[in-house]
């Protein structure tokens, strides 16, 4: 089954002058990690809201076109049911934390309690998630006293605990250090291995290149580019939509510009090492060996 299918979707928030989505047509398959990139205000967060049904059920406005989620038209979904089917991590952890729970442990349990999960199961599940994210030291702390990065991890833990089949994640690493960002991406990759479908908005393009199966570039409320990660990130038009290619892709561009093109354009570090290594061996007749 297809995760989401959008046909010529337009959406204008109530009280807004201009539409946020201006004719989006897009198909997202299940079981994949879909990266969504683009400038701020290009429609990324609105798209996430639509997939989760909070647009238009919570954020009202004028919606036209056809949105089908897991085979059912958006209008036919009960918003509560959609909210439990599709988990969501917001970009601002300061708004996601409930603010009414005294400890991180209780905060992570909050969503499960609302679903009516049995108490013992909640405790097992929360402990499991806390270990998975390595936040044991935070478990007894008050969520309101955490740093931005710590809150982001807790917001993430709350969603993983819900165990939804589809997870929409809006910039999960904006306040995390590089090591923690990679840890979050490892978790996201792990969720994909479990068969979850993931829609991920992320500015850190090197991480998108490494982990995403497909990439969609939004620009001014429309789909500017969509396809496999490689197709999109090596597209010469990428920069014109405000997206910087991965560092290794830039490196390849620079080499090509100085008359030293690689046989293929890399998007990940491993590919870059392979392709540049290949070139170096040709150049010097096998004098170099890659690590």
């Amino acid at each position: 089954m297809v995760l989401a299918e959008l046909q010529d979707v337009h959406f204008t928030y109530a009280y807004a002058d201009t539409p946020a989505l201006k004719g989006v047509t897009l198909t997202l398959e299940q079981g994949m990690l879909h990266g969504i990139v683009g400038l701020n205000s290009s429609g990324k967060t609105t798209l996430c809201g639509l997939l989760r049904g909070i647009v238009p059920s919570f954020h009202h406005g004028e919606l036209t076109g056809r949105t089908t989620i897991l085979g059912r038209e958006l209008a036919d979904w009960n918003p509560d049911e959609l909210a439990t089917t599709i988990g969501c991590v917001f970009d601002n952890p300061f708004t996601q934390i409930s603010g009414i729970r005294d400890t991180v442990f209780e905060e992570i349990a909050f969503g499960l309690e609302n679903l009516g999960v049995a108490r013992e199961d909640i405790i097992t599940r929360v402990i499991q998630v806390i270990e998975q994210l390595g936040i044991e030291a935070l478990a007894e702390k008050n969520p309101n006293e955490l740093s931005g990065g710590q809150r982001q991890k807790v917001a993430f833990a709350s969603i993983i605990a819900m165990d939804s089949d589809v997870i929409v994640i809006d910039e999960p690493t904006s306040q995390l250090d590089p090591e923690a960002s990679e840890a979050v991406f490892e978790i996201i990759a792990g969720l994909k291995k479990l068969g979850k479908s993931i829609v991920l908005v992320e500015h850190k393009i090197d991480l998108v290149a490494e982990y995403a199966d497909t990439v969609t570039v939004l620009h001014e409320g429309r789909v500017a580019l969509t396809g496999t990660t490689r197709e999109v990130l090596t597209d010469p038009r990428l920069r014109s939509f405000g997206v910087t290619p991965p560092q290794v892709t830039e490196l390849a561009e620079r080499l090509a510009a100085s008359g030293r093109p690689l046989s293929r354009v890399p998007v990940t570090r491993a590919e870059a090492v392979e392709l540049i290594g290949e070139r170096m061996r040709e150049e010097v007749g096998g004098g170099y060996r890659t690590a």
């Binding site: 250090d177 590089p178 560092q247 620079r254 090492v273 540049i276 170096m280 690590a291």
Partner: peptide, 30 residues
């Protein structure tokens, strides 16, 4: 717990030394 830039890591993986910091540095090494 800081990481080199991805391209500097590529240079290291290729045994081009560990003195590269920026994309410019790596371009010059290849």
């Amino acid at each position: 717990r800081i990481r080199r830039l991805e391209v500097a890591q590529v240079a290291r993986d290729l045994r081009l030394g560990d003195q590269a910091v920026s994309i410019d540095d790596v371009v010059a090494l290849i």
